[in-house]
Design a protein around this nucleic acid. Structure first.
Lengths: 144, 144
DNA sequence: GCCTAACTGATAATCGTTCTCAACAAGGGG
DNA sequence: CCCCTTGTTGAGAACGATTATCAGTTAGGC
C-alpha cells in the first residue's frame, strides 16, 4: 500500500520558506518573489503564491492585510502585532504581542485559534510632514 | 472672499451614510451599494467608493479587511472587534472592544490613534462540518 | 528504475477598486 | 433669485493583486 505523500520538498518551496523567515516583518508575495529570484534560480510568481498558501494551510505561515490591500506573509512562529501609519502605510513590527487572551467568553460557541492586532496612527516621519487626517497613498489602481 | 465649501451634502452621500449606519457589522462597498440602490434612486458604484473614502478621511467611518480581500466599512462610533471564521470567512461582531490601550510605550515615537483586533477560529457551524485546518473559500478569482 | 500524484512556470482570467471625463448641482455671493 | 465656482456624480475603461488552467517536470515511495 502506497503511503500518500502529503507535500513535496522542492527547492522552490525551501527557498520561499527561507525568504519568509529572513524577512524581519511580514512581506508581500511580490517581495518574497523578488527576494527568492534574486538570490538564485528564478521562481514563478504563481509558485510563490501556491507555496505560501500551502504554508498558511499547514499553520507555518500567517497572513496579514494592511490598508494597501496586499496580503503579507510572515512566520507564525515569529508572530507580532503592528503599528501601521495612516499616512505612508508602512507597517512597523511590534516586539511583543499585546493582545488579550481572548474576548470574555466568545458567545456563539466560536473556537478561537489566533488573532491579529494592529494599531493605527502616524509614524515619526509623517507626524511633522503631513499631520493627521491625511490619507495614505496606498496603491495606484484604476486608469492611469 | 468666497468661503470654500469643504464637502457638499448630496442626497447620495446622505443615503450612503444612512446605509453604513444601518448595517449591524462592517459591510462591503458592494453591500452598501446594493442597500442604497434598492431603497430608492440608484447610485453609481464609484460614488459609493468616493463617499466612503471621504467619510473615512473625515474619521466618521472605519475600514476593516478580512481574509476575503474586500474592504468593509462601519461607523467609527460603532467600533467593535470581530471573530472571523477561517472556514467560511464570515465575520461576527464582538459586543465590546477588548483591545489593550496600546502597546507598552510605542517606541519610535509612533502616535497611536486607533486599532483593529480580530480573532481567528471556527464558528459553530464550521466546527462540526469541516473541522479545523480547512481553508476558507474566500473569493473566486483567476481563470474560470 | 518505475510510476503516479504533486508541483512548476507561463499566461489568461477575474474582480474589487480607482481613474477619466463630461455633465450636474450645492451653496455662497451679488 | 440668478450666477458662478467647484465639488460631485455616473458610466465605463483601466489596473493590479491574486487565482485558475494546462502541459511538462519531478519528488519520493515501491
Amino acid at each position: 500500500m502506497r503511503k500518500p505523500a502529503r507535500t513535496r520538498e522542492t527547492w522552490q518551496r525551501k527557498a520561499i520558506a527561507r525568504a519568509v523567515g529572513a524577512s524581519p516583518c511580514h512581506a508581500t508575495a511580490a517581495e518574497i518573489h523578488r527576494s527568492v529570484s534574486r538570490g538564485g534560480r528564478p521562481v514563478g510568481l504563481a509558485t510563490v503564491y501556491r507555496a505560501l498558501e500551502a504554508m498558511v494551510r499547514a499553520g507555518a505561515v500567517e497572513e496579514a492585510r494592511f490598508s494597501d490591500g496586499r496580503v503579507r506573509y510572515g512566520l507564525a512562529a515569529n508572530h507580532h502585532d503592528h503599528l501601521v501609519c495612516l499616512n505612508c502605510g508602512r507597517p512597523e513590527p511590534l516586539a511583543r504581542c499585546t493582545a488579550p487572551r481572548g474576548p470574555r467568553r466568545p458567545a456563539s460557541g466560536f473556537r478561537i485559534t489566533g488573532h491579529r492586532l494592529d494599531y493605527f496612527g502616524y509614524c515619526l516621519d509623517c507626524q511633522g510632514a503631513a499631520g493627521p487626517r491625511r490619507r495614505a497613498a496606498p496603491r495606484r489602481r484604476g486608469r492611469r
